[in-house]
């Protein structure tokens, strides 16, 4: 009895069922849906947004938001890609990640030292970083001559993304940092009273989001073999959508990485399924909009 009473429905269950239902319908109507070619294509499609979404999840759980993730990805790819195309692959990868972390530190600095609301700080950072990226590259395409093809071929992008999800889940669930992230998102004042430093935790979270933007930049370059400043401008809303579909509350304090993973899954499957069933592209956006609301309602019902 005790066990049953204590059992709570996992928060991700409703959206997981939604994802499974979508996959089941597609798999039964379209035989190619579960083919390895299609799974690989979906994995590749999910990689960039998926990696960004893990960082975004942590940021949103602290009660913040990061509108600059796609811009950070673009700037790190262009900075690092320049070195990689010049033959310095290792240095270039380092520079990519370092640029991401630096951009994250810029956000974190504005939010903690400048005490700015995250949405304002990162909206400002979005403008600054994106235009810097375009001006820095002079609008040129960076070619990396297959030097990162290891990261972009076959199932590698999917595997890397899954590894990031697992790592993100472990950090958020089983480490002190993760517990503190939930604590300051739930109630910053009481977290502070409990001896947690919100500034340090937030700094770490925004820098982490920057690091993941750098990693996403490497994977994206690996997949595309080229990079150009406007290549990922859709990713910001894509990442936020995945996180909120995944049931993470924009008010902070609750949410989970597995939920985000399901959110990424839903949007990826929707995009792929729309093409498989031959849905007119004009309807696809409307369907995606409806799906976000349905997922949100499912999550809302669970809470009741």
């Amino acid at each position: 009895m005790e066990v049953i009473r204590k059992y709570k429905m996992p928060r991700e269950l409703p959206i997981l069922l939604f994802l499974i239902a979508m996959c089941a319908v597609l798999a039964t109507t379209k035989s190619t849906f579960l083919s390895s070619d299609n799974l690989r294509a979906m994995g590749t499609d999910a990689a960039g947004i998926g990696i960004l979404a893990v960082g975004m999840t942590a940021v949103i759980i602290t009660g913040g938001i990061d509108l600059s993730v796609a811009a950070m990805l673009a700037l790190s790819a262009l900075v690092g890609g320049g070195l990689i195309s010049g033959g310095q692959t290792a240095a270039g990868c380092g520079a990519t990640l370092a640029t991401g972390v630096a951009c994250g530190a810029f956000n974190g600095g504005l939010i903690t030292l400048g005490r700015m609301p995250p949405i304002i700080a990162t909206l400002g950072a979005l403008y600054i970083i994106q235009s810097t990226a375009t001006l820095y590259s002079g609008g040129q395409v960076v070619y990396i001559d297959n030097r990162l093809s290891l990261l972009g071929g076959g199932f590698v992008p999917l595997v890397v993304t899954l590894m990031v999800f697992v790592a993100g889940h472990v950090v958020m669930r089983f480490t002190r940092l993760g517990r503190h992230v939930y604590a300051i998102g739930g109630n910053e004042e009481s977290a502070r009273l409990a001896g947690i430093s919100p500034a340090r935790i937030k700094m770490a979270v925004y820098m982490g989001a920057g690091l993941l933007a750098g990693l996403a930049a490497l994977v994206t370059m690996g997949i595309n073999n080229t990079f150009q400043a406007n290549d990922v401008s859709d990713y910001m809303l894509g990442a936020i959508a995945a996180v909120v579909i995944g049931g993470t509350s924009i008010m902070g304090g609750e949410g989970s990485v597995p939920g985000t993973m399901i959110g990424v899954g839903i949007s990826t499957v929707l995009r792929n399924g729309a093409i498989l069933v031959g849905l007119d592209a004009r309807w696809t956006q409307a369907v995606i909009g409806a799906a976000i609301v349905i997922a949100a309602i499912a999550d809302r019902l669970r809470r009741r």
């Binding site: 936020i240 959508a241 924009i250 956006q285 409307a286 995606i288 909009g289 799906a291 609301v293 949100a296």
Partner: peptide, 10 residues
């Protein structure tokens, strides 16, 4: 943000 994100797309 969830509601208006979806109506933005729709």
């Amino acid at each position: 943000i969830v509601v208006t994100l979806s109506s933005m797309a729709a």
